[in-house]
Nucleic acid binder design. Sequence first.
DNA 1: GCTGATCGTCAGGAGTGCTGATCATCAGAT
DNA 2: ATCTGATGATCAGCACTCCTGACGATCAGC
Lengths: 133, 133
Amino acid sequence: MSDRLGYLLKHVQARLTEEQAKALQPFGINGRDLAVLAAVASGEPLSQLEVAGRLRVDRTSIGDLLDSLEERGLVERRRSPEDRRRNVVVLTNTGEDVFADAEQVRLEVEREFLAPLPDRDRFREDLRLLLGE
Amino acid sequence: MSDRLGYLLKHVQARLTEEQAKALQPFGINGRDLAVLAAVASGEPLSQLEVAGRLRVDRTSIGDLLDSLEERGLVERRRSPEDRRRNVVVLTNTGEDVFADAEQVRLEVEREFLAPLPDRDRFREDLRLLLGE
DNA sequence: GCTGATCGTCAGGAGTGCTGATCATCAGAT
DNA sequence: ATCTGATGATCAGCACTCCTGACGATCAGC
């Protein structure tokens, strides 16, 4: 069974999700939330659609994700003055703090997760190659 | 963004699922169905719970999967004579044929999918290491 | 023959991802 | 100026997947 690519990828992904959720629990967020924070944190303020684009998630999904992050006071949505259709998303002060700390935890989780491999960077590079990015 | 392990794994897995679904469409099954067929096909007849165990899926999920495969005439469930609590799952003749053909398609899909990598076996082996199997 | 465990089924909830419709807003053409 | 088509965000709703808890049937051991 364990030579089927689908099986392997599915369960590896599931296990990582689980590890991340456990480790991020103190922050009240999960791995996906953290990815959203990271996208919002990087550089200039983005519209919701730009955030969705970076994460490769659906336009409606990002709305729900931001709802939940906004409820917890980690991000804020503001109408863009230049284009009043756009919601510019920024981190709150709390969001900045949570992001900085949680990101450290993520790095540690990934390190431990990849520990069984002889070459962790190579694995990551393989994944990038498969995505063509 | 593309250095986050969660992002990479999620989308690599999604892409494989998509490719498999496309390629298996002529057989009316998807990658998960095929994995069930493979588990059922391998060796002696298994109970539903044994099938679930091999695939690492929930006991209730395997029920639904088998329902759908049985409707399409690919598997049959029979009460085990030795233990009448158990449903022994076997392939029908049609199931055998579909499995044999679809399995070839799966191998070809995986080959193409992993084509961008310098060493495909190594990637698979990495995944196995991460699962500890 | 009882008791506790196991197998399969069912109802239902949670999470995720997407489609289509709608409203507000913008940009370009007239 | 105004009209038209496109865009950003939101909403309702559907589909898929996974899991929990309860249940009936059956088994094994006392």
